[in-house]
Write a protein that binds this DNA or RNA. Structure first.
Lengths: 143, 143
DNA sequence: ATACGACTTCCAGCCGCTGGAGGTTCAAGG
DNA sequence: CCTTGAACCTCCAGCGGCTGGAAGTCGTAT
């Protein structure tokens, strides 16, 4: 698969053509060669780089994180402790989101269990939501 | 606390003044009365409605969900089964996000444990990220 | 009267894409 | 070689849910 179209690359990596173009425009992917008619033509290096980006995104890394990780991947003699730090921070962040989501889940569970149908005027769900001073949901941020 | 400024309302509900103005501009909050000089002046109804919105957001509901929930809260004689459905769907969504986050966490954990420092060229983290055909992370969406 | 913080409006930007309009190129079939 | 029609091109606006800055006005404490 030497020279592929953006559609081929898209099918290969699972990233939409529009997103691939956007990555290029924003500097995440180097501009590929072009056919005589101006169509993009990608090689293996693009497949690898796009794959890296996509997989990192799937693991929840921000584009800022990916910038650092790509730098490391591009300079293989560097110390990889930076990668370790980024990944560890990501785990901590995920843990925080897990805790938060679990707390939300409990409150929603309590909320729905209190509701036994009937009029909205006596609905526990509506009541609970109205109670903005409610103490069960801690801290800021939205899981 | 009859007539409060936007700052008072902000301190009372924990919602920033800019956000409050945005809610008004987008129709989530009714336009409040104004002082002679044009400053916003809020009453209890605004506190309640803003509290409802804020609490719902904290529970992870989208603005679209909140639209429906507010409609119910405004018409207390309606059947509240719609509220039940929205809340149940929200729980299901949270469950999906929890599962996804847990899968991500495991992969990140494996990734960092494989890395023992040294050069990026032999770093398991960088390697794992490069492997875009990696099978551990399922499905789309970024919980 | 003055100082100064809180308020006003307007508008641009955040992230990470996504989709549409309107036009061009490419590959397959006849 | 010609036609079809899908895939491609560029440009630009918009998504959700706010956030922040600029430039000017108001309200209140001293």
């Amino acid at each position: 698969m030497r020279h592929m179209s953006i559609g081929d690359l898209s099918r290969l990596t699972g990233v939409k053509p529009t997103t691939i173009r956007w990555y290029e425009a924003e500097g995440w992917l180097p501009p590929p060669a072009r056919t005589g008619g101006g169509h993009r033509s990608y090689g293996d290096a693009h497949v690898r780089r796009l794959g890296f980006i996509r997989h990192s995104r799937e693991l929840g890394f921000s584009m800022a994180d990916i910038r650092s990780l790509l730098n490391l991947a591009d300079r293989p003699w560097d110390d990889c402790s930076a990668a370790h730090a980024i990944a560890t921070a990501q785990i901590a962040e995920i843990d925080a989101r897990l805790r938060r989501l679990q707390a939300l889940r409990s409150e929603l569970e309590r909320m729905t269990q209190g509701c036994e149908g009937g009029h909205a005027g006596e609905c526990r769900i509506i009541e609970t939501l109205s109670d903005f001073a409610h103490g069960h949901c801690a801290g800021p941020g939205h899981g």
